[in-house]
Nucleic acid binder design. Structure first.
Lengths: 202, 202
DNA sequence: CAGGGTGTGTACCAATTGGTACACTCGCGA
DNA sequence: TCGCGAGTGTACCAATTGGTACACACCCTG
C-alpha cells in the first residue's frame, strides 16, 4: 500500500453509483457466503459466482478484509430485519407469540442464513477481526427487544432480563440442535416443553 | 497419490513407537488449535509451535485432512472424558448436580476448548468433511447420558428425552452467551432461573 | 468531435499453502 | 563391523491466494 491516506488506491471519493453497486455486490456476496461458507471464501470464487472478477471486488471494497466486514454487517442487518418483520400480531398470548416466532425461525429456507450466523459466531469467538465487532451484538441486540417483551407481558423487571437471556439461549441451543441433527420433531417437542415451563401453562 | 493401498506413502505398517508419537502430536495439536483456531491452521505454523517440521506432520498423518480428522476426534474424546469425570457425587439433588456441572463447564480454563467445540460445530455445519463425522455426536453423544439421568431422577420416560434435549440446548445457548459476552453474572442468573423452572424448586 | 474520468478485464506478482524428493543420522540385529 | 530401516531436516514444487499495473470500453460534458 503506497498512498498514505486511508482510502484504497482507486476511485477515491465514491460518486454515488458506486454505492448502489457496492450494496448490490454485498447482497450477492452474503447469499453466496450463506450457501458456501464464510471461512474459506476466496475473492476469485466469489467473483466467479456472482459475475464479477476478483479485481472488481478489490476495487469496490479495497481489501478482502473490508469485504468480509461488510458481509458480516449485512448479514446482521438481515437478521435484524427478520426480527423486526415479526411482532405484527397484537392479539396473541405470549406463549403463542413465542411459538409463532419459533416456527418462523425454523423455516428451512432460513437454514443457510442461520448456519452463516453460527459460523460468523465461531469466527468472532476466535478473534477474527472482521467478525469480532459482531460479538457484542450477538447477544445484546436480541436481548433488549426480548426484555421489553417480557416487561410488557408483565414480568418483574429484575426477572425480565434473566428470563429473556434464558429464552434467547434456549432458542439458539435448540436451533443448533436442529441444524446439526435435522430432527425437527424432536426439537419441536423440546421447545414445547420449554414453553410449558417458561409460560407456566400446562 | 501414487500408491494404491490406503496407507500414506512412507512408513507403511506403523511399528508402535509411531503410535505414541502420533498421539503425542495430536494432543499437542489440539492444544494449539484450541488456542489458535481451527479454520486457518497451517501445517507450518502448527509444526513450528509444537516443535516439528511440517514435513513430519505429513509423515505421521499422511495429509492435513487426516490430521484434522484426528484433531476433531481427539477433541471429542476430551469432551467426553470431561463428562465422564463428572457424576461422581452420589448424594446430590438433581438441581444441585446440574448446578455443579454448570460450574465446571464454565470454568475459564475450559473456555478455549469450548470455543474450539463451537468452531468445529460451525465447520461441520458447513460440510467440511473432516468435521462432519462429529455432527451426529454433537447432540446424541450428550443426549443419552442426560436422558438416563432424567429417567433415574424419576422423569416420565416419554418426557425424559424432551427434557434432556431442552437442558442440553439451554446449557449450550448460555455457554455461547458466556463466551461471547463474558458476562458471567448475567449468564449465571439466567441459569438459576432455568434451574428454578426445570426442577420446580422455588 | 475531443477528452477525461469511471468501470472493467487481462495479465501479472509475491507470499503462502499442502505435499514430495532426497539426503542424512541414529540405533539395532547379524 | 556392516547394513538397513525408521525418523528427520532441507530444499523444492505446483497451486492458490490477495493484491497491483496497465490497457481498453463506455459515457458524459465541453
Amino acid at each position: 500500500m503506497v498512498n498514505t491516506d486511508g482510502s484504497h488506491p482507486e476511485g477515491k471519493a465514491a460518486p454515488g453509483t458506486d454505492v448502489d453497486r457496492r450494496s448490490q455486490l454485498v447482497n450477492a456476496a452474503v447469499d453466496y457466503v450463506a450457501a458456501h461458507g464464510f471461512a474459506d471464501l476466496s475473492l476469485r470464487g466469489l467473483g466467479a459466482a456472482i459475475g464479477v472478477s476478483h479485481r472488481m471486488l478489490i476495487h469496490y471494497f479495497g481489501s478482502k478484509e473490508q469485504l468480509l466486514v461488510e458481509i458480516v454487517r449485512m448479514s446482521e442487518r438481515r437478521q435484524r430485519d427478520l426480527l423486526s418483520r415479526f411482532r405484527l400480531e397484537p392479539g396473541l398470548s405470549p406463549s403463542d407469540a413465542a411459538r409463532l416466532l419459533w416456527q418462523q425461525l425454523t423455516d428451512p429456507r432460513l437454514a443457510s442464513q442461520e448456519r452463516l450466523f453460527f459460523e460468523i459466531y465461531g469466527n468472532a469467538l476466535r478473534g477474527r477481526p472482521e467478525a469480532a465487532p459482531a460479538l457484542e451484538g450477538f447477544v445484546n441486540n436480541w436481548l433488549e427487544p426480548l426484555v421489553a417483551a417480557e416487561v410488557a407481558a408483565g414480568a418483574d423487571p429484575a426477572m425480565a432480563r434473566n428470563r429473556a437471556r434464558l429464552g434467547l439461549a434456549t432458542v439458539r441451543g435448540l436451533l443448533l440442535d436442529l441444524l446439526a441433527t435435522g430432527d425437527r420433531a424432536g426439537v419441536d417437542a423440546a421447545m414445547e416443553e420449554f414453553l410449558r415451563l417458561y409460560y407456566g401453562s400446562k
